[in-house]
Simulated assay, not measured.
Amino acid sequence: MSLEQNKSIVLQAYQAFDVGDIEKGKAFIAPDIKGYVMGRNQLKGSDAFFEYALMMRTAFPDGRHTFEDVIAESNQVVTRGTFSGNHSGGFMGISPTGKQVMFSVIHIDRVMDGKIVEHWGQGDTMALMQQLGVATWLIKF
């Protein structure tokens, strides 16, 4: 697949996630995907991947990705931007706060045969926890 096709696949997957359309999202995710995301060591398979996605969707039902950069090389797509949403559901043991959050994210997705087969996702967890009010002790720079 071309670099532009790989970018399109990745961006469509995030768009499906952002609107909560798991069925559409499944069209872009390989059944045997391996995922590495904040708060988890490894997600093995699409069931575990979508369980994590639904956990994020429950915690931030209006959550949205905004990407400033989308870079493709070979079969990998890197996205850099922010995730924002209202904390309306439980998240990592934190009860809903109703607070609006926005934190930086960087993802690397590997695409094979039109599907995402590996996902590495890193978010600015410290900024998120500060915004949720559970890390008030952190020094602000």
Rank of each mutant, 00 (worst) to 15 (best):
Q100Y: 06
H65N: 07
A127I: 10
V117E: 06
F67M: 04
E73W: 12
K140M: 05
G85L: 04
I106P: 00
Q76M: 10
Q12C: 13
G121Y: 00
K34G: 05
I106W: 00
F49C: 04
V77C: 01
R64H: 11
K115E: 09
G85Q: 07
K7D: 06
Q12I: 06
M102C: 14
M56W: 02
G39S: 11
F50Q: 01
L132D: 01
Y36E: 00
S74W: 07
Q100H: 09
H107F: 06
V78C: 06
K115N: 08
G20H: 03
A135D: 03
M56G: 02
G35M: 07
Q5G: 07
P61Q: 01
I29P: 01
A48H: 15
N86H: 15
G133K: 03
G133D: 08
I9T: 14
D62K: 11
A30H: 02
N6D: 09
K34H: 11
M112F: 09
E4L: 15
S46F: 10
I9F: 10
M38H: 09
V78K: 01
T82P: 02
I33A: 06
H87C: 07
K115V: 05
M1H: 06
Q130M: 07
S84Y: 06
V19W: 14
D109L: 13
S104R: 15
N86S: 13
I108C: 02
K26R: 12
Q5Y: 10
K44W: 07
Q15N: 08
F103G: 03
L138F: 14
V37Q: 00
F17M: 12
V101D: 00
H107D: 09
G25I: 04
E4A: 13
Y52V: 15
W137V: 02
L43P: 00
G25F: 03
D62W: 07
L128H: 01
G25P: 11
R110C: 03
V77F: 00
F141G: 04
D62Q: 11
N41E: 13
T58R: 09
M92H: 12
H65Q: 08
L43K: 00
W120C: 00
Q12T: 13
I106E: 02
I29S: 09
V19F: 09
D21F: 12
Q12H: 08
M126Q: 14
K115P: 11
V77I: 04
V105C: 08
R64W: 12
I71D: 04
V19N: 09
M102W: 08
G81F: 01
G63F: 05
H119Q: 08
I9A: 14
S84D: 08
K99V: 08
H107T: 04
K26C: 10
M55Y: 12
T66L: 10
M129G: 00
L54I: 14
N75V: 03
F141H: 05
G114T: 14
E68A: 15
A16C: 11
F50N: 01
D62P: 11
S95R: 14
V77R: 00
M92R: 13
I139W: 12
S95T: 07
A127S: 12
Y52C: 15
T79S: 06
V37F: 00
M38D: 08
S74Y: 14
V70C: 10
I94F: 04
N6Y: 09
I33H: 02
G85H: 02
F17K: 03
V134L: 07
G39R: 03
L11H: 03
H119N: 12
G90V: 15
K26L: 05
Y14G: 03
I116T: 06
Q12Y: 05
F67S: 04
D113N: 13
I9K: 13
